[in-house]
């Protein structure tokens, strides 16, 4: 694939004095960022409401015929009701319990496989690296959502397969980032020292190198949760992901599409939920990036899907 070396723009501001420890600096920068703060607060609220959905939601999200169908937002139903008379607000709350884990788990799958392959490729080099990087090239040859679609086409659409598909499809980014950083870390003194002392390879990789390349990985993983949520809800929207009756935001959007003209609320609120979640994660990720690794800006900016 294209590996173009463009001198990356740096955004280190003059205020960052080199006297403090990196961690303290990072925390300070993060706290200074208003957007990061907003992002974390909104995200926290979303996560909390999903966690407490069983208490917060006024109605059963699955039971049909509890109320009049397709009533507009009112005091009884703050987000209106859907075609089965179900409370949209309750379904949006419960939907978070599907969508958020899908984002988290698929990113965990991708990060685990991607980071360890990247470590191995970067550290070992040689044939191992060649094989891994050719695999990465291959996966990158599938534009956007195509790889996930391909996997879903083989496995079929379901919650678990959705996480697998989205997870696998985003492995390459982790491999490339990890490998790149490992390549430069490998030559640094602490690694050379560890090697001279005869530490085991895996020990060096995971104990010494990984912590030092962690920061940009965390930034990327955070931002990738956002795009994973978009991809997963897109697949569910297409009918290839989560199946009813499980409430899921993308799926709810698809269900509302049919009567968008008469009942905008069925579509509007689940979509808003996706957007707010992704928005807050993006803000948080931006804040983290500015705090931890300003050089990542270009790379992160070029990634998104949906």
């Amino acid at each position: 694939m294209a590996r173009l070396a463009v001198s990356p723009p740096t955004n280190v501001t003059d205020r960052d004095r080199p006297r403090r420890t990196p961690t303290a600096l990072a925390i300070r920068r993060f706290r200074q960022s208003r957007s990061a703060l907003v992002g974390s607060v909104v995200l926290l609220l979303i996560v909390l409401s999903a966690l407490t959905a069983s208490r917060l939601s006024p109605y059963n999200p699955l039971k049909i015929g509890q109320g009049e169908a397709l009533t507009p937002p009112s005091r009884a139903h703050p987000m209106g009701t859907d075609r089965f008379g179900r409370d949209v607000f309750s379904r949006v709350l419960w939907g978070g319990r599907t969508t958020l884990p899908v984002g988290l788990i698929s990113v965990s799958i991708a990060a685990t496989i991607g980071v360890s392959s990247g470590l191995i490729a970067g550290y070992r080099g040689g044939r191992m690296e060649a094989v891994i990087m050719r695999m990465v090239d291959l996966m990158l040859a599938f534009p956007g959502i195509l790889l996930a679609l391909f996997i879903i086409a083989i496995l079929g659409g379901s919650l678990v397969n959705l996480m697998i598909a989205v997870g696998i499809a985003s492995i390459p980014d982790y491999v490339r980032l990890t490998r790149g950083m490992v390549l430069s870390a490998k030559e640094q003194e602490f690694v050379l020292a560890a090697r001279a002392l005869g530490y085991r390879e895996s020990n060096i990789m995971f104990r010494h190198i990984l912590p030092n390349v962690m920061a940009p990985l965390v930034v990327m993983a955070t931002l990738r949760i956002a795009s994973a949520i978009i991809t997963a809800s897109a697949l569910s929207f297409l009918g290839l992901g989560v199946q009813p009756p499980t409430p899921e935001w993308g799926k709810m959007l698809a269900e509302g599409q049919e009567f968008l003209i008469y009942a905008w609320w069925v579509t509007f609120f689940p979509g808003l939920a996706i957007m707010l979640t992704v928005f807050s994660i993006n803000l948080l990720g931006d804040g983290l990036r500015d705090a931890l690794d300003p050089r990542l800006r270009l790379r992160a900016a070029s990634k998104s899907s949906g």
Partner: peptide
């Protein structure tokens, strides 16, 4: 721009139609 990045195309599409 941040809102735009965070907006799934199927959502913006439906809102545009609406």
């Amino acid at each position: 721009a941040m809102v735009g990045v965070s907006m799934p195309t199927f959502y913006s599409g439906l809102l545009l139609i609406l």
